[in-house]
Amino acid sequence: MNKSLLVYLGVLFTVVASLSGLVLVPDWQFRGIQPYETEDGIRYPQPLAGSTALGREVYIDLGCVYCHTQQVRPEGFGADLDRGWGNRRTVMRDYLFEPRNLTGTMRTGPDLANIGARQPSRDWHNLHLYNPRITSPGSNMPPHPFLFTVGGDESRRPLGATPLPAEWRTPGAAYILPTSRGRHLVDYLLSLNKSVALPEAQ
């Protein structure tokens, strides 16, 4: 008669077991993990703050994670290091203060774990976000015109605006000026740099 009850209890047990084994045990095992202090006295990683933290919110709300990972595979597993996507594999400590899981599972576009180190030009990011085909011909990334205002008068280009390359100019469009969200997003991308040498990643 109580076989049904046995099934109910049994299924509860199995799921609690896997939660404990896969999630709670690693959580407990690595609870003490701390930022690493380099010889120069730099503590890594640091929680993001200010504009870069706001930029991460934009990264989350626009769903960048659906095409871009933020993790570098180890030597001998894929070609991430040979492609120059990082100078070492990424490890647990890199994600110590991440408020969301942005490691990603899809590479329709390239990995971004170190995009700030790989592509430090703010103008490049502005143009690429405004229309990826400007900087990367053949890319299938969606354009993000809503992160920019467009101005037509080159002589009155404000500070922080990026001029459009000659072949992309039209009468009304000579430069693009990021909105505050656009600026935050670029700040965030420029902050992505996981190149600090960590002992466990050697």
Binding site: V23, E98, N101
Partner: peptide
């Protein structure tokens, strides 16, 4: 809870996400 709550280690978030 495990993916959105504050003060969860980022890697544990990733594991919880895929669990």
């Amino acid at each position: 809870f495990l993916t959105q709550a504050p003060n969860v280690n980022g890697t544990v978030r990733a594991i919880s996400n895929w669990w």
